[in-house]
């Protein structure tokens, strides 16, 4: 089971935080802070895994990857394979890259909703559902189309008001 997914920038600002168990905002803030505290103290050449028992309770590990200004962090338990989680981070980032062509922090900052849509296609209620970024892209495109269609509908109604 995956317990949480976070994207934190190198200054410690969260860019995405998804917890698969409900947590109060205070708790979320605390967890993100402590994760960042551990991350920024680690040497660049250190391994990508951290024992997170002290942060997330027993049987929890962290796999993370550092891309430019961002840390991608997955928190999971013993039902997941560590190296598979690293691969999954890779899948996630690849998908983002395909979606935004050469993804950078700014894309992630401004596309909050799309980020969630992508993540939800990969991880579903804490379970890994899709590991093929092409499949994910297919779904994302469909969903974006649908969203755009319904939004243009809204615009029509607004313009309708305007004509009134």
């Amino acid at each position: 089971m995956i317990k949480a997914v976070m994207i934190i920038n190198t200054q410690g600002k969260p860019r995405l935080a998804k917890f698969y168990d409900f947590l109060t905002v205070e708790k979320q803030r605390e967890l993100i802070r402590s994760v960042y505290g551990v991350l920024c103290s680690r040497a660049e050449s250190a391994s990508n895994f951290i024992d997170a028992d002290s942060i997330f309770g027993p049987d929890s590990r962290i796999a993370y990857k550092h891309y430019a200004t961002l840390y991608f962090v997955f928190v999971f338990d013993s039902c997941e394979n560590e190296l598979a989680m690293l691969d999954l981070i890779q899948v996630f980032v690849e998908t983002l890259d395909k979606c935004f062509t050469d993804v950078c922090e700014l894309d992630i900052v401004f596309n909050y909703n799309k980020l969630h849509t992508i993540l939800d296609e990969i991880i579903f209620g804490g379970q890994v559902l899709e590991t093929n970024s092409a499949e994910v892209m297919k779904a994302i495109e469909e969903i974006s189309k649908l969203e755009a269609a319904s939004n243009s509908l809204t615009l029509k109604t607004v313009s309708g008001w305007r004509n009134r």
Binding site: K13, P14, R15, L16, A17, K18, V25, E26, Q28, R29, Y112, N113, T117, I143, L146, E147, A149, S150, N151, L153, T154
Partner: peptide
């Protein structure tokens, strides 16, 4: 709520209203 930890429990009912919209974007 997600990024800046602002409380949103008070908006629960409004969220329910949104999912009942026929519009996919609102629902999402």
């Amino acid at each position: 709520n997600s990024i800046h930890f602002v409380d949103m429990t008070w908006a629960a009912f409004h969220a329910i209203e949104c999912i009942s919209s026929p519009n996919f974007a609102h629902k999402k």
